[in-house]
Design a protein around this nucleic acid. Structure first.
Lengths: 157, 157
DNA sequence: AAAAGATAGTTGACAACTAAACTGTTTTAG
DNA sequence: CTAAAACAGTTTAGTTGTCAACTATCTTTT
């Protein structure tokens, strides 16, 4: 029984700041891989789930541009994603009378049902993964990552 | 002067565990975007830099398989990446006498020079982004992300 | 020593994403 | 009021990555 080599960083870092950022990056690569496999097993994808969930939880309809900003992806990506989901009958593009350039995107019943199913599995997964974190640790993680977001926006946007 | 909408999470989360994981995910998406732009401005990419840096810091030569595991990407991805870097004269594939299936990958002088240049800019960037974190906060981030890696390996691999 | 299985790397098909150029529509400024 | 600028969404081309099937080599089992 050996220790998984992915637990510790691939190379030593020159100082604590580097170490913290690389540790974060490294973990996010792992989360990405886990997440890809999880959604793949459930015949979906991270982008798909996030899109449906964002639509579900938004108050009022969203435009593609708003979705693009919320989801931190390029708007051209949203176009393609919505094309697919529309053809699967999970969302609808509704013309906006006040602005003929835009669409209001809404979930169909099929979209809502699919999301409901995925949400159960997703919540189970989150619970399993995060169960070893105390409330205080969760709070710390939220606050540290929020700090990092602010810094990223400030120094690199 | 309004607050950047990317600071706070796109949708409210049902509990602290969800919030922590989503906050982490969200931040990692931002870091990814920042990182892509940073390396693109410097005529490189995250994958490119990570590969060179990993080779540089390894003791002894590495095989493609080892690189693939260190970098958490598929081995076929390493093949393509190395093809490009080899054609740019930044790395060399050296036949391994003891195992004729493998190559030992080494940096060329050109590769080392490029990396040295990138490393300066990268370190500046890390310093700028992480300067608002105290040592203690860096430690916390390292320890929380390490914990998350362990949990991800345990519950989802 | 031979057959079966594992491993290193490559290939090809594909998925997810970006960026830049484009179309059509709306807003703003002279 | 009209020209210029900004904006929403699409298209196209290119990048980065996966996965599965494949070749060649090495290891294990018997």
């Amino acid at each position: 029984m050996t220790v998984d080599p992915r637990i510790d960083l691939p190379v030593p870092q020159p100082n604590k700041q580097h170490e913290a950022l690389v540790s974060f990056w490294w973990t996010s690569a792992m989360l990405k891989n886990v997440s890809r496999r999880f959604f793949r097993e459930n015949y979906s994808s991270e982008a798909h789930f996030n899109l449906l969930a964002t639509l579900m939880k938004s108050e009022g309809p969203m435009t593609q541009n708003e979705l693009s900003q919320k989801l931190l992806v390029d708007k051209s990506n949203i176009t393609g994603l919505l094309d697919k989901l529309e053809s699967l009958g999970q969302i609808k593009r509704n013309k906006v009378p006040e602005d003929r350039r835009s669409y209001h995107i809404t979930l169909t019943d099929a979209g809502r049902e699919l999301l409901a199913g995925l949400d159960v599995l997703y919540s189970e997964m989150v619970h399993k993964v995060m169960d070893c974190f105390t409330e205080e640790q969760c709070d710390q993680l939220v606050s540290l990552t929020r700090k990092l977001r602010i810094s990223l926006i400030e120094h690199a946007s």
